[in-house]
Amino acid sequence: MYRLLKQIAKTGIVTEPAPEADESLRLLAQRLQDAVLGHFGRSLAVRHVDAGSCNGCELEIHACNSPHYNLERLGIRFVASPRHADLLLVTGPVSRHMETALRRTYEATPEPKLVVAIGDCGCSGGIFGESYASRGAVSNVIPVDVAVPGCPPAPAAIIQGMLTAVSSTSARRSSGASR
C-alpha cells in the first residue's frame, strides 16, 4: 500500500486543459434548444458503438479516459446502455452486418439525442468505402450531428467533437470560460 500511495503522490496531476468546440465539424444544424444544451453541458452520457472500425479509433476513445485527458472531469462519461445515453459516439465504416444493430441502438436512445461520427471511416467510409459488406459513412445509416475526421482522430479531437455536439452559439458565449 505504501508503494501505491507513493506512486500516486509522485505522479501528481497530469490532466491538461480541454479543447474548445469547433463548429466546422458540424454536419447538421444544431437540433437542440439552449435549455437542453445547458442541461447536457453539465452531464453528458455517451454510448460508444463500434459499427465496423479497424479498432484504431477505439484505442483513442480509450485514451480519452486516460489521465492526460480525464474526460469525466468535463461531466462526460461512458454508459453501458443506449437507454442511458444522450449521445452516440459511432466509429465505422458501418458494416452491413452491424447496420441493424446500429439502427436499433439509435432507436433505443431516448430523445433528445446526438450522434458524433468518429474517424475518416465514420465520416466517409474511409479506405473501406462502400461495398457489398460496407455501408460506408455513419450518416448513410443514421443522422449525424458532428463528424470528426482523422485516422484515428487524436483524443483531444474526439473530445472536441463531443463538446461541439453539445454547444450552441449562445451557450458557448455565456459558458465558454467555465468549461
Binding site: D50, G52, S95, H97, M98, S131, A133, S134
Partner: peptide, 21 residues
C-alpha cells in the same frame, strides 16, 4: 463476423503499392 467489411475483396481492386495502407 459483425465487422466483415470486405477487406479481401477491396484488396483486389487496388494496386500493390496502394494496398499497403
Amino acid at each position: 463476423g459483425y465487422k466483415h467489411k470486405g477487406i479481401e475483396k477491396r484488396f483486389e481492386g487496388m494496386t500493390a503499392l496502394d494496398a499497403a495502407r
